[in-house]
């Protein structure tokens, strides 16, 4: 079959909600787009362990510590689901890890912000995981089967993450003035970066249209951002916290919250590597990778020995 005809059939198949598998024919651009998106998603899960890991030894109670440990463990697991899903497209784990460590691959810019207080752990669960869930639920219907199936597991497991974050903030907001102030400070710092998680405006997102046509994406960046604001503002009001946006106002006619403009220069800066913690995150991941080299080598050596001398 000719390339043109293959492409035509592919387009028609995904348009009719057909699912692509690793052994299906797919255009190079589809494969490349998915490898980039899935590996960056995996990197985000792995780097995302760091801001929260920062509080593992300092959680305010054994209960909170066990919960946080379980959450960080989940992020590691999600990274592994996603790396494996990307590997079904023919890329290798080594290539992906190298791209993360040498800076060619990106990860979500949100993880380049610091977590100086315990309230940040609440804000990450509530806002960052809330925004992630908003982005990820539609990915469970992505046209690429291995990604969609990985996302189903991720979403199912992630459902506790947002609640535990909100639970931390409810507790702080019912506490002392100092605890409420700490919660407000965390919201002030995490609100705008959370809105940036949905990516640039639709007009500034050149690949969005193709991803929508290929059924990788289901909703536009701006649609998802609006949905996030609409569900999150009432939750902030319940907590008695103020969203740090002077332009935030409920629009009776549309039933949506109008909100101000995120600082897109900051978004580009952090994405380009100049955020508060970019260097620290990559330095730490590199160190963990280098320090773990002997484990990988030992596993390979052990496996090779057993292939050479199979059990009787």
């Amino acid at each position: 079959m000719e390339a043109g005809e293959l492409l035509e059939r592919f387009e028609a198949f995904v348009a009719s909600e057909g699912k692509i598998e690793s052994d299906s024919w797919m255009p190079d651009a589809y494969r490349k787009t998915l490898v980039r998106q899935i590996s960056q998603h995996a990197h985000s899960e792995i780097i995302g362990m760091q801001p929260e890991g920062n509080w593992l030894t300092r959680a305010p109670s054994l209960r909170r510590k066990a919960i946080l440990l379980a959450k960080v463990q989940d992020e590691a697991g999600h990274g592994l689901y996603l790396y494996a899903a990307a590997e079904t497209l023919g890329t290798s784990r080594d290539e992906m890890v190298d791209a993360l460590l040498d800076g060619t691959a990106k990860y979500s810019s949100i993880f380049n912000y610091p977590t100086p207080t315990w309230a940040d752990i609440g804000a990450i669960g509530w806002l960052v995981d809330g925004a992630a869930i908003m982005n990820q639920v539609p990915l469970c219907r992505c046209s690429y089967g291995p990604y969609a199936r990985a996302m189903k597991r991720v979403c199912k497991e992630e459902s506790f993450h947002q609640r535990q974050g909100f639970d931390i903030l409810v507790t702080l907001c019912r506490g002392s003035d100092a605890q409420r102030a700490m919660a407000q400070d965390a919201l002030d710092r995490w609100w705008w970066p959370s809105l940036m998680m949905f990516g640039p405006h639709d007009g500034d997102s050149p690949h969005s249209a193709t991803s929508m046509r290929w059924r990788i994406k289901r909703f536009s960046n701006d649609e998802l951002r609006q949905r996030f604001v609409d569900v999150t503002v009432p939750q902030a009001h319940f907590l008695g916290l103020r969203i740090p946006d002077d332009e935030l106002v409920y629009d009776d006619t549309t039933g949506h919250w109008k909100f101000g403009e995120p600082d897109w220069d900051e978004f580009q800066r952090v994405l380009a590597g100049d955020g508060p913690c970019n260097a620290e995150r990559i330095e730490r991941r590199t160190r963990a990778h280098v320090d773990g080299a002997w484990v990988r080598e030992a596993a390979e050596a052990y496996a090779a020995k057993h292939v050479a001398a199979p059990a009787a």
Partner: peptide
């Protein structure tokens, strides 16, 4: 605590 129903 790994399940969402744990949280009120």
């Amino acid at each position: 605590f790994r399940h969402p129903t744990y949280y009120e």
